[in-house]
Design a protein around this nucleic acid. Structure first.
Length: 916
RNA sequence: GCGGGCGUGGUGAAAUUGGUAGACACGCUAGACUUAGGAUCUAGUGCCUCACGGUGUGAAGGUUCGAGUCCUUUCGCCCGCACCA
């Protein structure tokens, strides 16, 4: 072959690899394992853009590298295929979501294969496949049939809890959730089945409860907290309101502490760990009960600052706090109800927007537990029912919001922490994290820390308070009122949720994918399916479906044993493949998928189904590749121009614009005659933004592959910069990586196609180049510094080129090094120089330092830290000798100007610095 | 407001424990070859300066023989969380 014909080469080897199944993986105990995983994609209708493969290329490089180093590598791919876009498309067209999903998926697979990934497609999985979601349902059942034992600190069978209730009631069990009542063994016996189940629902790890939820009318479903961003749905940006509904939940809060602690054991980026810590939101403080005057009620508050309790001059309840209606005096009732109604109907977004200070007095007073002073009780929006107990002891002197409230309502402000600077506490709150107490009776002069301890201790002794840890993390909503998701294996019989053990429970056909204007899912449309009768169980099926994260929470386990129909994954596979060694994916899953996966993993570990309790040992977050949009400024508005229609230089001519217009009616009302031209070009604004179909700035990897080849695409994506960084896609630099591959080709074939390799001995320089490259590439891959690897390959090929290296062994070793990055061209040349078999089965070259050892070093000679010249000295020359030589040098003498130097620093093998 | 990350040429970016700032590319300039090409090769390219030299990693200060790297202050950008009690 005379020139580098990537089209022929790439399609040939992709066919060969598939035909010979060289990426098929089986358990092999003679080799160490390596599990490299990509976050599996949701196959959208838009297909892949060049941003998607960034992480996939990186993990493929590591996979191929590990394989060349003798590892047995598990590198699978699959699809997270349940989801809203397919369903919304189904609503519009009446087409079953499975059909569009299948189409999109086929396209994705073609696109992925075009890039030459080493996936074992025999292990492909789809969350929508009943053979897969059978086990998603099975895990749900395990959650349903488990509770969290705080004594053993792990999940255990719910049957064990029932046995405890039967034998001793709940006296020795930490009360959970809504359950507050104590009962004995006899008390348990005397409960009806419904009452017993109501108690168990307070313990099950998958349970139902009535609660305020994020309801999105536009999507017709509730959303989890991590699916709501700034009060709008993450998908689609629709308004989200608060609604009280009975929903399924997963008790992730039971794992809050372990999810927090586990972060210290895994190799993830600081930012993701920090995001998860924030989300879990652990804070230590105290729970304190305030008696209400002339009432049997008490208000429980959570505070992180018990030391400020003597500064508390009023209390505030959330408007929807359960005590509000009970304690409000008749005089205040009308006003309170009006305020509560307005506040409770506000969406989260409206509440956040409104920063004004507002509230209403209930007419009731609480009694300060230490001083017995009367504290007026208010309700206000600034206290959230979802955090802590939904009630606060307000300390206006040391909290901003409390201060603003006190000023508005004319409430006393008492400073209890002293400050070093002069401050007017009536004017501004003092956010005192340290200092000494004042106005606090016996606690005066204690530090903040000491006082917190002492006050909690006294409160405990007197029985009105206790140490408490609070979490922001809420239980995870697990119901979605949608069609295209996993059905619950649950039948409601006599008000009791009952498990269906015949799995899978398959999605039934429905007439319409749209819910009938209720809060029920479209599944409720199929009456026949909904009414369940089977072996003594009859009732109404659960019609909600599971959320998007259900299937993705455990998929990494299924890849290990994807076709097992007896177990979710077989024991041998689990033991062998174990944890994911390297997981690559975007940061957008920081609090969703990554937290849920960790939770499910810990749960499955607790119940003895797996032997490890963190799923992903090392996590790398690839950056986003942004698009460069081209925008036409029409004065009154800006219009995005499809970038794939522009000239190679990214220019828009009137001719091109007319072509665009003829095919796309969005541009109909723009006339080319009204546009001012600059040298025959329509001026456009460039803007870096998200790569998205709607912004017409998508670059398709297929186009790049067709023009330059997949190997060039792979190299270029890595060459763009550090994997973790976000960067805009620019086609400008791609010629450089393409040229590099052509230069590599030229090492093997001259212009006439004559083979260049032979067995003449390699020069010392070539050996040095090779071993320098082996070292650099090995180190770089281990450090995931793939951009610098590509640079090193360029240096290597440039050097071998100028050395006219024709040594077959050297060239062959370079091919192995480059193979993970550019699998096609290296396979072709590997084969061409006479190797049988595939380069994937070759062995990674060993680095030998002896080729890099130098006998002398070209020292940079600096004067006052600034390099002025370079002098070569033997590496074994003594410091004194070097100094003598340096000072004798003409240039150095010129700088010295006859005077002796103040100091000469010689760092052997590195540098010489002369100080004047 | 709190937490995490980042500021280096015209552009993407390199730079071990502090040790030649700008590797490798893109782009640009000049030239060679030529079946005129969006191919290939050679040389140059941080900025100022004809040059000697000066200057330079967001800004200011400090530690050091020596700072992109360490410390202090400050400005700007990105991401996450946020009436969180």
């Amino acid at each position: 072959m005379s020139s580098y014909d990537f089209q022929t080469i790439e399609s040939k080897w992709q066919r060969e690899w598939a035909a010979k199944q060289i990426y098929k993986t089986t358990i092999d105990h003679s080799k160490p394992k390596f599990y490299a995983l990509d976050m599996f994609p949701y196959p959208s209708g838009a297909g892949l853009h060049v941003g998607h493969p960034l992480g996939y290329i990186a993990s493929d490089i590591v996979s191929r590298y590990k394989r060349l180093n003798g590892y047995n590598v598990l590198h699978p791919m699959g699809f997270d295929a349940f989801g809203l876009p397919a369903e919304q498309y189904a609503i519009q067209t009446g087409q079953h979501p499975a059909v569009t999903t299948e189409e999109n998926l086929t396209r994705y697979k073609e696109q992925l294969n075009r890039i030459g990934f080493s996936y074992d497609w025999d292990r492909e999985l789809r969350t929508t496949d009943p053979k897969y979601y059978k086990w998603t349902q099975w895990i749900f059942i395990q959650l349903f049939e488990s509770w969290y034992n705080t004594k053993t600190d792990k999940a255990e069978s719910i049957d064990a809890l029932i046995t405890i209730f039967e034998n001793e009631g709940n006296v020795n069990i930490d009360h959970n959730g809504e359950e507050t009542e104590n009962f004995t063994a006899e008390g348990w016996e005397n409960k009806s089945r419904q009452e017993q189940e109501a108690v168990l629902q307070c313990y099950r790890l998958a349970f139902q409860k009535e609660n305020t939820v994020n309801w999105c009318e536009e999507l017709g479903t509730v959303l989890a907290n991590d699916e709501v961003k700034n009060g709008l749905s993450e998908r689609g940006g629709h308004e989200v309101t608060q609604k009280i509904m009975k929903q399924w939940y997963l008790r992730i809060t039971a794992y809050a502490d372990r999810l927090l602690d586990g972060l210290n054991t895994i190799d993830w980026s600081d930012s993701i760990k920090e995001t998860q810590r924030n989300w879990i939101g652990k804070s230590q403080g105290a729970s304190i009960n305030f008696k209400i005057e002339a009432s049997h009620h008490t208000i429980e508050v959570f505070t992180t600052r018990p030391d400020t309790i003597f500064g508390s001059t009023f209390m505030v309840l959330a408007p929807d706090h359960e005590l509000v209606s009970q304690i409000t005096t008749n005089v205040q009732r009308a006003e309170i109800e009006a305020y509560a109604t307005i506040a409770n109907n506000k969406s989260e977004l409206e509440r956040k927007k409104d920063k004004s200070v507002s509230g209403v007095f209930t007419g009731a007073y609480a009694l300060h537990p230490f001083t017995q002073k009367k504290l007026p009780i208010y309700i206000s929006e600034y206290v959230l029912s979802g955090y802590g107990t939904g009630a606060i002891m307000a300390v206006p002197a040391h909290d901003d919001r409390d201060h603003a409230f006190a000023k508005k309502f004319g409430i006393d402000i008492i400073q209890v922490i002293s400050s070093k600077e002069e401050i007017d506490i009536q004017e501004q709150s003092y956010d005192a994290n340290y200092g000494k107490l004042m106005n606090s009776e016996n606690f005066d002069r204690l530090t903040v820390k000491e006082a917190s301890q002492a006050i909690i201790q006294l409160a405990e002794e007197r029985g009105f308070g206790t140490k408490k840890i609070n979490y922001k993390l809420r239980d995870a909503g697990y119901s979605r009122q949608r069609y295209w998701g996993e059905p619950f294996p649950i039948v409601h019989q006599d008000g009791i949720p009952t498990v269906i053990n015949e799995l899978p429970v398959e999605l039934p056909p429905v007439d319409s994918y749209e819910a009938k204007g209720t809060t029920e899912s479209p599944l409720a449309n199929n009456e026949e399916w909904v009414n369940y009768t089977n072996g003594g169980v009859n009732g109404r099926r659960e019609t909600d479906t599971m959320p998007g994260y259900a299937g993705s929470s455990w998929y990494f386990l299924r890849y290990m044993d994807p076709n097992n129909d007896q177990e979710f994954v077989g024991k041998e596979s689990l033991e062998y493949w174990n944890q994911v060694d390297l997981y690559i994916g975007g940061t957008e899953h920081a609090t969703g998928h990554l937290l849920y996966s960790r939770f499910w993993t810990k749960f499955l570990c607790d119940r003895g189904h797996i032997s490890f309790d963190e799923p992903f040992k090392k996590l790398v977050n690839q950056g986003m590749i942004q698009g460069e949009s081209k925008i036409l400024n029409l004065g009154n508005r800006e219009v995005h121009i499809p970038i794939n229609k522009l000239t190679k230089e990214g220019k828009l001519t009137p001719q091109i614009f007319n072509q665009i217009k003829s095919k796309d009616n969005r541009f109909n009302d723009i006339s080319t005659e009204n546009l001012t031209l600059d040298n025959g070009i329509i001026p456009l604004i460039s803007k870096i933004e998200k790569m998205s179909k709607s912004l017409l700035n998508v670059v398709n990897p297929d186009d790049v592959s067709n023009q330059y080849g997949a190997d060039t695409l792979r190299l270029y994506e890595m060459f763009l910069g550090p994997l973790e960084d976000s960067k805009p896609w620019s086609t400008k630099g791609i010629d450089g990586t393409y040229r590099f591959l052509k230069k590599l080709w030229a090492l093997f074939y001259d212009q006439d196609g004559t083979a260049q390799w032979n067995d003449t001995a390699a020069s010392k320089d070539s050996m040095k180049t090779l071993h320098k490259t082996i070292k650099k590439i090995t180190d770089d891959i281990n450090a995931m510094s793939l951009n610098t690897s590509v640079a090193q390959f360029m240096i290597c090929v440039n050097e071998l080129g100028s050395q006219k290296c024709q040594n077959k062994t050297v060239l062959e070793q370079v091919l192995i090094l480059l193979n993970p990055f550019a699998p096609h061209i290296t396979e072709e040349l590997w084969n061409a120089i006479g190797n049988k078999g595939f380069i994937a089965d070759a062995t990674w070259p060993a680095y030998d330092e002896k080729h890099l050892i130098e006998s002398s070093k070209l020292y940079p000679i600096s004067i006052n830290g600034k390099t002025r010249t370079n002098l070569e000295f033997p590496l074994d020359m003594s410091k004194d000798e070097i100094e003598k030589n340096v000072l004798a040098n003409e240039i150095v003498r010129k700088w010295l100007d006859g005077k002796p130097p103040k100091k000469v620093i010689v760092v052997p093998g590195r540098i010489v610095n002369v100080v004047l």
